[in-house]
Write a protein that binds this DNA or RNA. Sequence first.
DNA 1: CGGTTATTCTTGAACTCTCAACTATTAGGG
DNA 2: CCCTAATAGTTGAGAGTTCAAGAATAACCG
Lengths: 162, 162
Amino acid sequence: MTETRWLDDDEQETWRAFLWTSRLLGEALDRQLQRDSGMPHAYYMILAMLSEAPDRRLTMTELAAIVHSSPSRLSHAVNRLEEAGWVRRARHETDRRTTIAELTDAGYAALAEAAPGHVAEVRRHLFDPIDRERMLAFRDTLHSLLESLDPDRRAPCAPGEG
Amino acid sequence: MTETRWLDDDEQETWRAFLWTSRLLGEALDRQLQRDSGMPHAYYMILAMLSEAPDRRLTMTELAAIVHSSPSRLSHAVNRLEEAGWVRRARHETDRRTTIAELTDAGYAALAEAAPGHVAEVRRHLFDPIDRERMLAFRDTLHSLLESLDPDRRAPCAPGEG
DNA sequence: CGGTTATTCTTGAACTCTCAACTATTAGGG
DNA sequence: CCCTAATAGTTGAGAGTTCAAGAATAACCG
């Protein structure tokens, strides 16, 4: 046990600003999606990532890595999404352990309908308030943080339509 | 309804980087606190904010604003914290509607014991990976976002020992 | 004053997430 | 080959959050 090095004032302010920003932004997006499309943001993300995959199919493990979810969380979520008719489970051809999650047409339609409102909300809260230069610096900093948080680089931040 | 303006590649990358960063960081902190101190981060924050208040007391409304919580969430949380003996509810002198939440000595002790490990985790994930210059730029960007997300500026990011 | 409105806080139900435990299947090593 | 270990996924219980509803009190205002 070494002596604790406390946060100085600048660090304190940075940390709390990050905390409130991610909290408020997350809540704003959850509220908008829940209200307008009846799904939480985590579920939207699952549909979005599936929609970008080849044949709109991914194994549970692949999907969990992409949306940064625990296996358990994803399994529960897919249960709900299946009940809603937006996702379907299928068997893997050769490995009988693995389950494949597949976006249904209804799921694609729900995603397509939800997307505009969601993107507008992201733009309003995340991109309207800052100019492009600051956005790019912000992105670089986030990538540095991610590298430390997720050393295995499981998940891409690359483009799609989410 | 106007035509949707989708996110371009840089925006997409920025948005996802922010999403995963806040998700992973939040989960890391929750896990550390839950494991080492038996409380989720939201509860730690409540104790921390109370500890910085005059007499370690705040009304529920004040506290909710400071920790960016809904009244309901805070009420449930204080129920648990009261069961744990870390917080006590008291009456307001003149306004019988308002409840005052007060940090107990046991609560202060729990906070003091949890703090070093928590701060270490914040430092490890948030400050070790980036230098001071980028941290300050990061902070400024977050403040811009906060201004849009929280126009009433309800909550301070100013220093304390949280 | 008296009635409406706003504020403060709490509750219960529904839902999501976490964690630990568990099943089933495949891969590895003597 | 067989036994162990690793991988893939699911489940149930417990805990936290959200939302809508409601109770109590205070403030407003004609």
